[in-house]
């Protein structure tokens, strides 16, 4: 039972940071289906940097992980510029752009993973092998019945993500930039008339979106898989988008949805073990988050209020 909470949280938090990234992009008026691509590309850059610097650190050093996280954020943030370029500057169809970004990310990372492996290790593996993140338990809180499991065997990144989410909630709701950003997604003309720079605001939002997705990606790489390979593309980016939709583009409710996804996934897996089914049955339980998403969509999609201007390119010169 305890493992359900522990694993659930470690799945939910990377999902949440990606969803927060998606919220930033969409609230600024840029539809973001590219989360998956940002996630994968960020994880790739993070893993690549980690593999490169690992020899200079003692085995199992946790510093590598933090450097990798920073690299993932920067790498994905820069990759997100491509989405921004297509959507904001080129005024391409934003849904197409998102799909393009995702497909391109798979192609880029797959090719360069094997290329990097060949250059670094001389092998033609399609995986960048990473260390395992250390874990810790919060004394006191872990003793709480039931939900104590949340506080046992935590990954440090879970704390980092919580802090980041709080910060990005604050940035969106309590600062001038945040006011501008949300206005850009509702009525960019209003922002322009008030002296704001719609394009710049959106560029920043999309880059933030990329950086946060990259962090989510490297966290998945370090927790679930302990390596980077193209198998990191498991549709989690789209799960984050679904969480954002159910969360009605608000950070608080989205966090709750991510937690539900996380618990559903870990709960299903533990159920599989508890029922002593053969390991091949785990495939059936791995489907749970996707099925849950479809079901939630059926019940909640009608009540959504996406940002009004999301998906519409902003053309200052257009009258």
């Amino acid at each position: 039972m305890e493992k359900v909470f522990t694993d659930g949280l470690s799945f939910a938090m990377p999902l949440l940071i990606m969803a927060v990234g998606a919220i930033y992009s969409e609230k600024s008026g840029v539809t973001n289906l590219a989360v998956e691509g940002f996630q994968g590309f960020g994880a790739f850059i993070g893993a690549l940097i980690a593999v490169l610097i690992m020899p200079f650190f003692p085995k199992g050093s946790q510093t590598v992980i933090y450097i990798a996280m920073a690299a993932a954020a920067v790498g994905a943030g820069l990759y997100a510029c491509l989405h921004a370029l297509l959507c904001i500057r080129f005024q391409a169809n934003q849904v197409i752009s998102g799909v393009v970004i995702n497909i391109l990310a798979v192609a880029l990372t797959t090719f360069f993973t094997s290329a990097a492996n060949k250059a670094i290790t001389g092998t033609s593996s399609n995986k960048l092998i990473l260390d395992v993140s250390a874990r810790f338990t919060v004394p006191g809180l872990q003793a709480i019945p039931w939900i104590g499991g949340f506080f046992r065997k935590m990954y440090p990144f879970e704390i980092i993500i919580m802090v980041l989410v709080l910060f990005f909630w604050y940035l969106m709701n309590k600062t001038r930039y945040g006011m501008m950003l949300r206005a850009c997604g509702e009525n960019p003309q209003a922002v322009d008339a008030a002296g704001g720079d719609v394009e710049k605001t959106r560029w920043i939002a999309v880059m933030i979106s990329g950086a946060l997705s990259g962090i989510g990606g490297i966290c998945f790489a370090y927790s679930l898989l302990a390596n980077f390979s193209p198998s990191i593309y498991l549709g989690y980016g789209y799960l984050a988008i679904a969480a954002m939709i159910f969360g009605n583009w608000k950070i608080g409710p989205t966090a709750l949805v991510c937690l539900i996804f996380g618990l559903a996934k870990s709960g299903g897996y533990q159920l599989c073990i508890a029922m002593q089914l053969p390991s091949s049955y785990s495939d059936l339980f791995l489907m749970l988050p996707y099925i849950l998403t479809l079901l939630l969509m059926v019940f909640f999609s009608a009540k959504n209020h996406p940002p009004k201007a999301a998906g519409e390119p902003w053309d200052k010169g257009r009258r």
Binding site: V99, L234, I241, Y290, T293
Partner: peptide
């Protein structure tokens, strides 16, 4: 886009 991806994995 979301539903087809979910169905893909299912």
């Amino acid at each position: 886009v979301v539903s087809t991806i979910m169905i893909n994995y299912i």
